[in-house]
Design a binder for these strands. Structure first.
Lengths: 132, 132
DNA sequence: CATTTTCCTACCTTGTCAATAGGTTGGAAA
DNA sequence: TTTCCAACCTATTGACAAGGTAGGAAAATG
């Protein structure tokens, strides 16, 4: 499988945030209830998104999270790159330049590279605004 | 990651077989040496391919494996479907009809379905003959 | 009958996914 | 200024799959 729950939950959380008034802060407890994701697990996912600058969080009463950008400027691919360890269809594409000893003579490498391209261009072409 | 070593090794083994004289039997010890895959691991992979009817094996002296079809009639996708537990980009696409409770209202499902389509059409369009 | 090779069953180790637990810090309202 | 809320931080856990091993049984051939 290419995309784990972490990435899929992340998309859902961003999607939920994008459906709110722009700039409105939403608490994680509300987000996790709405999306039926455990609060604790959602915490770990949201932390990644904040660290990447996609969300910003404010503590204290009436605190919560909000998007730092418009929904049409956030692609699904971007969210997945943040939350998934890898989006590549095969491991050997992860470290550039390619570390595999047989890379130079590998008959399948061009195929994997094309597939990787296909997948990533598709996922980066779709924005959160497209989904809502 | 979408494709594990099992699937990739399987492709390499079929590729190696396709480079031989048609109908020639090749022992697994030779195949595994040529492709630098441990004999024992190669056994488990080849067993899947035999069970699926893509290879046939003969025991005893001068035994070995050979393809049951021409290389231009074997697609990469077919090999991967046999060797990988799943080729889907997300888990919810694996059991049809979709078991996910939120499927009917899921805003991302159409996207995953299109991605799945994209990946599978690509992999099924490439044959072993194309790679050699 | 000895050798070669496939075939079969079981096991092991490692790492990641998915999720939980418990606490600390910061901010705002009462 | 106290209280409460909510984000933040640092482990830890259980389940499962990936990746690979081990040992032997069955069949074919010379």
């Amino acid at each position: 499988m290419l995309v784990s729950t972490r990435g899929r939950y992340a998309i859902r959380i961003v999607l939920e945030l994008s459906s709110r008034e722009k700039g409105e802060r939403v608490s994680l407890s509300e987000l996790s209830k709405k999306q039926e994701i455990s609060l604790k697990y959602a915490e770990t996912i949201v932390a990644l998104l904040v660290k990447a600058g996609l969300l910003d969080g404010q503590r204290g009463k009436r605190g919560g999270y909000r998007l730092t950008r418009d929904a049409n400027e956030i692609s699904v691919g971007e969210i997945l790159i943040i939350t998934e360890d890898s989006l590549s269809p095969v491991a050997c594409l992860d470290c550039k330049p390619n570390q595999c000893e047989r890379a130079s003579s590998c008959k399948t490498l061009p195929m994997w590279e094309k597939l990787d391209d296909l997948i990533k261009s598709y996922l980066f072409s779709i924005t959160i605004a497209d989904l809502n």
